[in-house]
Design a protein around this nucleic acid. Structure first.
Lengths: 262, 262
DNA sequence: TGCGATACGATCATAACCGCTCAAGTCAAC
DNA sequence: GTTGACTTGAGCGGTTATGATCGTATCGCA
């Protein structure tokens, strides 16, 4: 039983039951718990499953429930970033979110904001525009949120929608505030992404937004990814974690970016 | 009974009755009161329910909880319908799917079609257009599928996207084949849905399609839901289960619909 | 308003699980 | 045959989930 066979078997179990437990997989595949865990971590990294305590749950079809028992190291920082960023969206505003793990954390924090749920009825407390299907899935049961999805072709890696259809949609929209997840942010180069297709779609979101808040953990700072999304002058605020280098923060502030270290 | 299953069960109870009591949940799920309380606190934090003394109540407006939690029945029939319907899509074609549990079954069957996965590379074996975010989520990891999502406002109940943005997207698209999930199909009234907003979006999908295949389990046959999607003349094929009444099948055939009982 | 019963939150003990690290084993390339 | 990269399995310290206990708060009822 080599690795490939194990992964295939795990995926089959996930497809069958929607979840896998470590013990169960150990018994079925004859590998050690450590190995099974490594495989599940791999599946989690590949976005094919979500790691939980005791196993993993299927991800691709798990729009069943917006539940996440994720336990991880970088997860804590992202959650804090999400908390702080989510507080920046005023009640009643229209807020944009692109794809990525950090914006997903913002989405979760938005969904859990107590002051939004308190509003009994009437107009939604927040309108969310996103081009990422997993972000939409995270938010959609909340009656106090209006969730708008742009159209487009799905990019599997990031769940983002891009292409002409996405651009067509974004031309018709305008948001007060955009939470922009990036692959790199640099005082000279601005915000950037690995994929030029994503960068160009994200640029349209930027253009549709009155205020740009980049959300990025500190590992992204000072990094220049392949494709520029927008120059530093277009960025109003950066929400990151306390791991940011003081020098980098100063540079960004010098470029006109408000820096918040959560 | 792990945590995931408990949370799902609690949500199902909430969707069913609008409330859950701790004792009731303890009896039904076989966990201790402390654990049930912790779960309810979690649901409260996620704004999916409101904690009360003795239990929890569903949030106002969450009658719109996804229908996944309300109906777990007829899964076997739906799967068979999905299998048969998925076989109707030729390799290389562009196929549309709207929202609903039956179309979700079609999506799963499409994703699992061996002849599609066999194609090593090059152009995608199938292009799928959908206005349902959960359908997109079900399909998006497969490299041999190109998944296109229409834009729009998410309706939590069915995961469908509708509204001006959806219409704008659909105007720009055309598909060879549409798998249409409905709330009712009748030889006189045609295909219909409970929500007029969905019906109008679905009508645009119908207009964009060269061939219409309605997928519906036999409980939907002869039923007229509130809003018409399209008249019977617009329907080429119906894929349903063997529970269909012979008389109803004859009527539909008389109206020009090819009837396939899987 | 006062009382009894019930439910609650906090704390703790237990057991399972996790991530991490290290050593041993496997395989391919040179 | 040797080297080197990769994979696997085991041990260890820390974390998480669960269930029980206990003092306190809340609810229903008179």
């Amino acid at each position: 039983m080599d690795r490939h066979a194990r992964i295939s078997a795990l995926l089959a179990m996930l497809a069958e039951n929607g979840k896998v437990e470590v013990d169960e997989a150990v018994a079925a595949l004859g590998a050690s718990p450590a190995t099974i865990r490594r495989d599940l971590v791999y599946l989690d990294e590949q976005r094919l499953a979500t790691r939980t305590h005791g196993g993993a749950v299927a991800d691709s079809g798990s729009f069943d429930l917006p539940l996440h028992f994720k336990t991880g190291r970088a997860m804590d920082e992202k959650r804090r970033i999400g908390q702080v960023a989510a507080g920046l969206a005023p009640i009643g505003s229209t807020t944009g979110l692109n794809g990525g793990t950090t914006t997903l954390a913002v989405a979760r924090a938005l969904a859990a904001r107590p002051d939004l749920a308190a509003r009994e009825s009437g107009a939604p407390a927040l309108t969310i525009v996103t081009n990422a299907v997993n972000v939409a899935g995270e938010l959609l049961v909340r009656p106090y949120l209006k969730v708008v999805v742009t159209g487009g072709v799905v990019r599997a890696h990031s769940y983002e929608l891009f292409g002409p259809l996405a651009e067509r949609s974004l031309e018709a929209l305008s948001v007060d505030l955009l939470f922009l997840g990036v692959d790199g942010i640099d005082a000279g180069f601005g915000a950037s992404a690995y994929s030029d297709a994503e960068a160009s779609t994200n640029l349209l979101m930027v253009k549709a937004a009155a205020r740009i808040v980049v959300v990025a953990d500190s590992s992204k700072i000072g990094r220049r990814a392949f494709a520029q999304i927008c120059p530093p002058a277009g960025i109003d605020t950066l929400v990151t974690d306390k791991g940011i280098e003081p020098a980098a923060a100063a540079q960004l502030r010098g470029a006109g970016v408000e820096v918040i270290a959560a």
